[in-house]
Amino acid sequence: MKNPIFDSLLVLLFVGFASDAGAQQFMTREGHVHFFSSTPIEDIEADNRQMSGLLDALTGEFAFQVQMRAFHFEKALMEEHFNESYVESEAFPKATFTGRIVSWERIPNDGQRHDVVAEGEFDIHGVTQPQRIEGTVQWMDGAWKLKANFEATLADHNIVIPTVVKDNISPVIAIDVEAQLLPR
């Protein structure tokens, strides 16, 4: 008995499984994000060691996210202003980066560090922008180690710096990311 609808459902199911069943996922809950704003008047930096991330080792696709409120600054007031006035973390609690490591299938798990390019969507303050990030990946001790640094322009993400503190906050923020993803 041939039922075309049943057939297509079967194929659909198969396709759904095929893309996930073979995929080995790697994960972290304690990736490190550090950002730095430098101006002649003031340097501002913050750390977040609670970045979570998933990497699909079959396709090189990934998703990372951080809770904005888990960034720690040197001064309490900086932390308050960061959350209250700049990233508005109540309304936009997370920043995410989703995408794919380019030519992932060509990267050997040989223990060496390899330069890679990741392309994806960077979402912070509720504004998503395409972002291209250069970094390195390394297969070590059964885990993927990822490192990258990139720059984000505040204005691209609709983060407004008022005139009175224009000299204290850089319009372009340097971001460093480091994570070790273990098999799930």
């Binding site: 396709v15 893309s19 996922q25 809950r29 888990a70």
Partner: peptide
């Protein structure tokens, strides 16, 4: 599926990570 996959990873990530 290919276009939605990265978004799917993010949903999966949300499902397994608790907000602190």
């Amino acid at each position: 599926t290919s276009a939605m996959h990265a978004q799917g990873l993010l949903d999966e990530l949300n499902a397994v990570t608790e907000a602190p």
